Amino acid sequence: MKVYTIGFTKKSAREFFALLKKHSVKKILDIRLNNCSQLAGFSKGADLEYFCEICGIGYEHNTRLSPTKSILDDYKKKRIGWPEYEEQFLKLLSERKVEELFNFGDGNNDVVCFLCSEEKADQCHRRLVAEYFKCKNPKLDIEIVHI
């Protein structure tokens, strides 16, 4: 099964939704800590939920899959580097037991896409979340696709 990730930065609404449609995404899991920033444009939480509804895509905002404000601030203010951020965030996911949130492969979470703001996934927590679920579900042969 495929699990997708997407960031909205440097994408127009047209490009963003075209990518979701192209990959047959059925549900967006918004894993941003703050999904109502003025900088979010079309991807502000309530607006994005409405646009997804129009497109027939489910939407859920889940901060259990977000970093804490402290971890995020430490990284943004360069008090920690990416390796430390990654280590702290993965520890947080484990402590929160987020693998219990979803039952991938039951048909209800098929074609899911983790959403965050970063343009690229290499240094974004959405990649870490997708990899965490892949690691916790080895029997499902999850393929992660960053769109």
Results as ranks from 00 to 15, higher is better:
65 L>A: 08
65 L>Q: 01
65 L>M: 10
66 S>H: 06
66 S>E: 01
68 T>M: 06
69 K>M: 13
69 K>L: 10
70 S>V: 13
71 I>N: 12
71 I>T: 03
71 I>M: 03
72 L>S: 07
72 L>Y: 01
74 D>V: 14
76 K>D: 05
77 K>F: 14
77 K>M: 08
78 K>A: 10
78 K>P: 03
79 R>E: 02
80 I>C: 08
80 I>A: 03
81 G>S: 13
82 W>R: 03
82 W>H: 10
83 P>K: 10
85 Y>D: 08
86 E>N: 11
86 E>Q: 15
86 E>K: 14
86 E>P: 09
87 E>W: 07
87 E>M: 10
89 F>V: 00
90 L>W: 04
91 K>C: 04
91 K>V: 15
93 L>H: 05
94 S>K: 14
95 E>N: 12
95 E>D: 15
96 R>F: 09
96 R>L: 08
97 K>L: 01
98 V>M: 05
99 E>D: 13
99 E>F: 12
99 E>R: 04
102 F>C: 09
104 F>M: 12
104 F>K: 04
104 F>E: 02
105 G>Q: 01
108 N>V: 11
109 N>A: 11
110 D>S: 00
113 C>P: 01
114 F>Q: 00
114 F>V: 12
115 L>Y: 04
116 C>G: 03
117 S>N: 10
117 S>G: 15
119 E>K: 09
120 K>E: 15
121 A>G: 01
121 A>I: 09
121 A>K: 03
122 D>K: 10
123 Q>Y: 06
123 Q>S: 05
124 C>E: 07
125 H>Y: 09
125 H>V: 09
128 L>Y: 06
129 V>T: 06
131 E>V: 11
131 E>D: 11
131 E>G: 07
131 E>N: 09
131 E>M: 05
133 F>W: 06
134 K>G: 11
135 C>K: 15
135 C>R: 15
136 K>P: 00
136 K>Q: 12
136 K>T: 09
137 N>F: 11
137 N>H: 14
138 P>V: 13
140 L>A: 02
141 D>Q: 05
141 D>P: 00
142 I>R: 02
142 I>Q: 02
142 I>K: 07
144 I>N: 03
145 V>Y: 04
146 H>E: 07
